Simulated assay, not measured.
Amino acid sequence: MSDTPQLALRKGLFERLSASAALSAVLGSGRIFDKSPRGQAFPFLVLESISAEPLLSHPDEGLAHVLRLVALSRGGSRDEALTIAETAGRVLIETPPAVDGQHLVGLQVSSLSSRLLRDGRTFRAEMTLRAVTEPIG
């Protein structure tokens, strides 16, 4: 049984991001997660959410995905979190991920924002991407 388009896209994203020397240089290795892990040293990157809607009348005709990547840092400013998020976005745009069973029609950054969290020491940079996939064949 093949993965759903969302699972295939998620897998491709993690593979591409994990293999990036540029991202490892600013983030470190083994610091990309599906959820914020307890006790994890900062900084780290989280694929916080992924959603999809049919492009046309039926999901088998293609999907528009909205992805949210979040970089969390306790650096002295928001610079580290923003650099991580921007690097992750650049990696994905310059070398789009392989998506098993799907053709990745397009991938673009929709937004980038940052803020200081309530704890007063953690910076959060959030990047939203839009990806369009169509089934192969």
Rank of each mutant, 00 (worst) to 15 (best):
S2D: 15
S2R: 15
D3E: 15
D3T: 13
D3V: 10
T4Q: 06
T4N: 08
P5T: 09
A8P: 08
L9F: 04
R10A: 13
K11G: 12
K11D: 15
G12C: 13
G12L: 10
L17F: 10
S18Y: 06
S18T: 15
S18P: 06
S20A: 13
A22W: 00
A22P: 01
L23F: 01
S24L: 09
S24G: 15
A25P: 01
V26Y: 00
G30Q: 08
G30N: 10
G30S: 07
I32F: 11
F33S: 08
D34R: 11
K35E: 14
S36P: 09
S36H: 06
S36E: 15
G39D: 13
A41M: 02
A41D: 12
F42L: 15
P43K: 06
F44E: 06
L45F: 11
V46H: 00
V46S: 01
S49D: 14
S49M: 08
I50F: 02
A52I: 08
E53M: 13
E53P: 04
E53L: 14
L55E: 13
L55F: 08
L56W: 14
L56V: 14
S57C: 05
S57A: 14
S57Q: 13
S57K: 12
H58N: 14
D60T: 14
D60L: 11
D60Q: 14
G62N: 08
G62C: 07
G62S: 09
L63A: 02
A64I: 10
A64Q: 13
V66E: 13
V66Y: 03
L67Y: 03
L67C: 06
R68E: 15
R68M: 10
V70N: 00
V70Y: 00
A71C: 03
A71I: 01
A71W: 01
L72W: 12
L72K: 07
L72C: 03
S73I: 12
R74G: 11
G75V: 02
R78K: 15
A81P: 05
L82E: 13
T83D: 10
I84A: 02
I84S: 00
I84K: 00
A85Q: 03
A85K: 00
E86N: 05
E86P: 00
T87Q: 08
A88Y: 07
G89P: 02
G89F: 01
V91Y: 05
E94I: 10
E94S: 15
T95G: 04
T95L: 06
P96K: 02
P96A: 03
A98M: 09
D100W: 03
G101I: 03
Q102H: 02
Q102E: 10
H103L: 11
H103R: 09
H103F: 08
L104H: 06
V105P: 02
V105A: 07
L107K: 00
L107M: 02
L107Y: 00
V109S: 13
L112S: 02
R115P: 07
R115T: 14
L117W: 04
L117P: 04
L117Y: 04
R118W: 07
R121S: 14
T122E: 01
F123R: 05
R124P: 04
M127S: 07
A131E: 03
T133S: 05
P135Y: 05
G137E: 12
G137C: 05
